[in-house]
Design a binder for these strands. Structure first.
Lengths: 146, 146
DNA sequence: ATACATGCAAATACTTTGCATGGCG
DNA sequence: CGCCATGCAAAGTATTTGCATGTAT
């Protein structure tokens, strides 16, 4: 495993009061290594199983829930299926373009107005700490094919 | 039922080639009357059941799917549960502020930059036709209580 | 010894499907 | 008649839970 991934995981371990078991480390590793993909609970289960045979699916769900509650992963819904993704920076926005034709999921950032938090606080009194944006349409490739 | 709701349903019937059965009318009515709420499939089932006893849950799911595919309702995911809402205007955006404390769901519009579609087309070649935004945080009331 | 995490299997949603029936052109 | 929508029940998925066991302080 790369030093980078290892360091990242160790810093998360500290955040979680060093409660990172072997299983949880495997799950995090799978998420970090596949940060460009969006994994379902079962995807993660299978990935971990390939080098930690005895993992149970319940542990995967329990761990993902723990990570979600600690802001380590985000649980998103793409076309009626739940997927999990590692959150690299606290403030990173998780915005997706979803192609309705080929199913491609394109990550984008900074779609929202910059001062959104401030605007919401002033106009609505709403204190936001997480946002999720999904935009459906046709990706570049599929638009051409039209 | 108000004339308004009835007219609305009739216009949808036309869009769907007049395939609006009694059951589907009931489901639509429930959705329209509760347009300020976000209903789960079961919520809808129970609402319809109260004045159309024989409705089956499978019909609810099948109808909601039909409506979704015809752009009549949108299926959104709020805190890991699927909810359905009637779409009043073709171009209306489905943007929500979700309070993590009291669970309030506040609809907002025009959160995104105005020229988003154009920007996406130019920068990413992505042709968008629908967007969904969910922002989590504390609503005005719960922020105060902090 | 205590507390908590795990794996397994069973239980629980939630949603979809097969099929016989029914309504409508 | 032929077609499609329906209700019911059964089957599928996806996820959660109970519990005995294991592991680490």
């Amino acid at each position: 495993m790369s030093n980078y991934v290892e360091e990242l995981i160790n810093s998360i371990a500290q955040e979680l009061n060093n409660t990172l078991t072997v299983q949880r480390r495997h799950i995090l590793t799978a998420l970090i290594k596949n940060r460009d993909k969006h994994l379902s609970a079962e995807d993660i289960y299978n990935l971990v199983k390939s080098d930690y045979e005895s993992i149970g699916i319940a542990t995967v769900y329990r761990s993902l829930d723990l990570f979600k509650n600690n802001g380590v992963v985000s649980k998103i819904n793409i076309d009626d299926i739940f997927k999990y993704e590692f959150i690299f920076q606290e403030k990173e926005k998780h915005h997706h373009l979803i192609c309705k034709k080929c199913g491609a999921i394109i990550d984008v950032q900074d779609l929202l107005v910059d001062n959104l938090s401030q605007k919401l606080r002033i106009e609505k009194g709403f204190e936001c700490f997480d946002s999720y944006v999904s935009i459906k349409g046709y990706c570049a490739k599929c638009s051409e094919d039209e």
